[in-house]
Design a protein around this nucleic acid. Structure first.
Length: 429
RNA sequence: GCCGCCGUAGCUCAGUAGGUAGAGCACCCGGCUGUUAACCGGGCGGUCGUCGGUUCAAAUCCGACCAGCGGCGCCA
């Protein structure tokens, strides 16, 4: 048994091989039938000729339908007429499952593809996306292992909110109610006191009724937290991590990127260091572009898109006003109206993929910020305790992995970056 | 939560002076010795999203509902 990518190598020319896979396309013409077969590694055209094989097997080959599963044996040949100039001259054609009719044809609409996502996953486009996604997840973890981080796990069922409380999913819990996690950050913070540097990859859930191409209700959140790190050191870690992921994808998935129509030359320029811009300067830039934005405004989607179209690289935005960020961000000692934080905005209009910053580590400051945010200290007793016992400066970040995949692949919708998207209106398949 | 849009064959769509539906693809049958999303001929295939209203008559006009898509706000 051989894989298709393997037998496409020149040393296989003239050799007999057996492959298993699925029918990508088939065309029959009387005494010959052309069956293009795919497996997870590639595709190859197989040629069935009546005179070369048992009559009943030729009949099977001639009448085979799209996406049927088959096992074939034949001789690898070089032929200019074949797509890719390699083909398999068949001696045997066996069928595991012959399909009546496969729902995916050349005409397909967006909604239909979401309804039959379980079958659309087999398409070459989606196969490429999933391969790239796999590289992104692997290289994210590899980067942090390489920097001596430990991978940790936090609970998905939690009692407290990390971000705004209104976007929590409530689930029944033995007669009470708990929430699905929005972020593992607070739990990661508990673990830096023993492990110092930690990361996690986990789903996060947001009950926001978002109807945009960049939101999912269930998404994959990659988060890191590092003891002793300031905001700037965290940004340096992140820009190296993003550069590493892009480099790995280019190395392992260049064919997949090309199939998706992604401009590789553009991706190759996304290497660290990434530019930094203060929030106040982003507002100035926005105003110079004719946008109606003022200091203290959060950037709207249109504004963010207009501004990031100016960027030639992913760019960190720092020094946001404290009013725009969650309570745990550490005020800048030099300008307490702002916090030591950063968002990383991807270029090409893709926008925010990372949010992070330095965490408040002084007990009294955290208690004051909780009060100012209208939160009860009792609900966050364990988070506050961390500031009571051996507290230290530290920073962290959260990365939207699906958004990263979307940007790297150049996709129009985040739903195509994940196999089974969960949105406000879609729970199936 | 707010605004906009769509729903006709398995899929992509066409279908107005209101007269109960059609094409291409898929699938089936036949033809073809090199196809490249093959081609040629034939065939199968529809409670026109649901419910109600107007009308002699509704895919078509009106209303409600259901389902989904897009944009904003919010965020990763």
């Amino acid at each position: 048994m051989n894989s298709i990518s393997e037998i496409l190598k020149s040393e296989f020319i003239g050799k007999d091989v057996t492959i298993r896979g699925w029918v990508y396309r088939s065309r029959s013409m009387g005494k010959k039938a052309f069956v293009v077969i795919r497996d997870s590694t590639g595709i190859i055209q197989a040629v069935a000729e009546r005179s070369n094989m048992p009559e009943e097997e030729f009949t099977l080959a001639e009448g085979i339908t799209a996406e049927s599963s088959v096992e074939v044996t034949g001789t690898v040949a070089e032929d200019k007429r074949a797509p890719g100039e390699r083909e398999l001259r068949l001696k045997s054609f066996k069928v595991f499952c012959r399909n009546e009719s496969f729902p995916v044809t050349k005409d397909k609409g967006e909604e239909f593809l979401l309804d039959i996502r379980h079958l659309w996953l087999r398409s070459r486009e989606f196969t490429s996306i999933l391969k790239i996604r796999s590289t992104v997840f692997r290289s994210f973890a590899d980067y942090f292992y390489g920097q001596n981080y430990y991978q940790v796990q936090a609970p998905m069922m939690v009692s407290t909110a990390t971000e705004g409380g209104s976007t929590l999913f409530k689930v029944p819990f033995f007669g009470e109610e708990v929430n699905l996690t929005q972020s593992s950050q607070f739990y990661l913070e508990t673990m830096i006191f023993s492990l110092e540097k930690v990361f996690t990859i986990a789903p996060s859930f947001r009950a926001e009724k978002s109807r945009t191409r960049r939101h999912l209700t269930e998404y994959w959140h990659a988060e890191g937290e590092a003891a002793w790190f300031g905001n700037e050191e965290m940004m340096q870690e992140e820009e190296k991590m993003i550069s590493h992921i892009i480099k790995e994808v280019i190395k392992d998935n260049s064919e997949d990127l090309e199939r998706l129509g992604r401009d590789l030359n553009k991706l190759k320029t996304y290497t660290f260091p990434f530019p930094r811009m203060k929030y106040s300067d982003v507002i100035k830039l926005g105003r110079s572009l004719g946008l109606d934005v003022n200091y203290g405004d959060d950037l709207g989607a249109d504004e963010e898109r207009t501004i990031t179209m100016q960027f030639s690289k992913p760019t960190f935005i720092t020094d946001f006003p404290a009013t725009l960020k969650s309570f745990y961000h550490r005020p800048n000692p030099e300008n307490p109206e702002t916090v030591l934080c950063h968002d990383l905005l991807a270029p090409e209009g893709y926008g925010e993929i990372i949010g992070g910053g330095e965490r408040i580590w002084e007990l009294d400051v955290l208690q004051r910020r909780l009060r100012e945010s209208g939160l009860r200290e009792d609900d966050y007793y364990w988070y506050v305790d961390l500031r009571r016992y051996g507290s230290i400066p530290h920073s962290g970040f959260g990365l939207g992995l699906d958004r990263l995949v979307m940007w790297i692949c150049g996709l129009e919708s985040i739903r195509d970056a994940i196999p089974f998207p969960r949105t406000i209106r879609r729970m199936k398949p």
